[in-house]
C-alpha cells in the first residue's frame, strides 16, 4: 500500500523533545521505515517565525526532491504584509506549490468572509485545498462557520484526536468539504466508523511529522477494519486526487 502524508513539517523548529526527529534526513528515514512514499510539507519557519521567508526556505529545502510536495503557509494580505492573491497564485504555479496551510490562531487573523473572502474565492476557483490543524480553530462552531462560509473549498483538518466526534459528526454530515487528517484520529474504531457513516473519501492520511508519530499513523490505517479499497483511498488516493485537481 502506498502512503502519501498530508502533513509534514520541515526545518528547524523552536522546541524539540528528546529523540524527536529534526533534520530532513531523519524525517526521510522515518518515512522510509513507515513506507511513506511522499509527504506534503510546509516549513517550520513559516509557522513559527517569518511566513514569507519560511515559504522560500521550503523551496530551498525541497529543491529537486520529489519526496516532498510543496505547501505554502498563507496570511491575509492586509497592510501589505503578505502576497496578494494574484501574486500568491503566480508564485505557487512557478514553484510547484499545490496546497496552502493556514494558522489563523497562531498568526492572529479572522477567517470570516470580510477578511478572507477574496482569498477563499481564489482557493475555490483554483481548487486549492486548504489545510489546518483543529486547534487553530476557536471551536467546532468556528469550524462549521468556516466550512459553510466557503463551501467550494476543500479543507483538511488534522490533529483532531479522540474526543470530538459528537461535535464533528454533524459537521461532517452537513459539510462535504470537510476532510479529516487521520494522523492522531485515534478514536476507538474511529476510521471504520468514519468509513461507515461518511465514506473513506472524507479521510486523508497524515502523520504530523516530525512531532507526530508516522508509525502510529500508518498502523491506524493498516489495522483498520475496512476494505483494502478504502485503505488505499485514505492512504494516498484521496489526497492525490485532490492535488491533481488543482488548477494553477
Amino acid at each position: 500500500m502506498r502512503f502519501i502524508d498530508a502533513r509534514c513539517q520541515l526545518g528547524r523548529r523552536c522546541v524539540i523533545r528528546e529523540n524527536e526527529p529534526v533534520t530532513k534526513a531523519e524525517i526521510l528515514e522515518l518515512m522510509d521505515r513507515c513506507r511513506i512514499e511522499r509527504a506534503v510539507a510546509y516549513h517550520a519557519i513559516a509557522k513559527e517565525g517569518d511566513v514569507k521567508a519560511g515559504n522560500m526556505e521550503l523551496l530551498k529545502d525541497t529543491e529537486g526532491d520529489s519526496r516532498f510536495l510543496r505547501q505554502w503557509v498563507a496570511l491575509p494580505h492586509t497592510f501589505g504584509e503578505f502576497m496578494s492573491v494574484e501574486e500568491l497564485l503566480k508564485g505557487m504555479k512557478e514553484n510547484s506549490v499545490s496546497s496552502i496551510r493556514m494558522f489563523p490562531k497562531t498568526h492572529g487573523y479572522s477567517l470570516k468572509p470580510y477578511a478572507l473572502g477574496k482569498f477563499m474565492d481564489a482557493m475555490a476557483e483554483h481548487k486549492i485545498p486548504v489545510f489546518m490543524t483543529y486547534n487553530e480553530l476557536a471551536s467546532e462552531d468556528a469550524l462549521y462557520a468556516m466550512l459553510t462560509d466557503y463551501p467550494k473549498v476543500n479543507f483538511i483538518i488534522s490533529d483532531v484526536s479522540y474526543r470530538e466526534e459528537r461535535k464533528l459528526f454533524p459537521i461532517l454530515e452537513h459539510c462535504p468539504n470537510f476532510h479529516i487528517g487521520t494522523g492522531n484520529y485515534v478514536v476507538h474504531g474511529g476510521v471504520k466508523t468514519m468509513c461507515e457513516y461518511f465514506g473513506a473519501e472524507r479521510m486523508i492520511f497524515d502523520t504530523g511529522l516530525p512531532t507526530g508519530s508516522a508509525a502510529a499513523a500508518v498502523s491506524l490505517i493498516c489495522f483498520a477494519e475496512i476494505s483494502e479499497e478504502e485503505k488505499t483511498l485514505i492512504a494516498s488516493g484521496n489526497l492525490e486526487r485532490m492535488l491533481s485537481e488543482v488548477e494553477l
Binding site: L75, P76, T78, E81, H107, G108, Y109, Y114, A115
Partner: peptide, 11 residues
Amino acid sequence: LNRWLGPVLDA
C-alpha cells in the same frame, strides 16, 4: 492587532 484590524478597516 493589525491582522485583525486591516480587514475591518477595508470593510
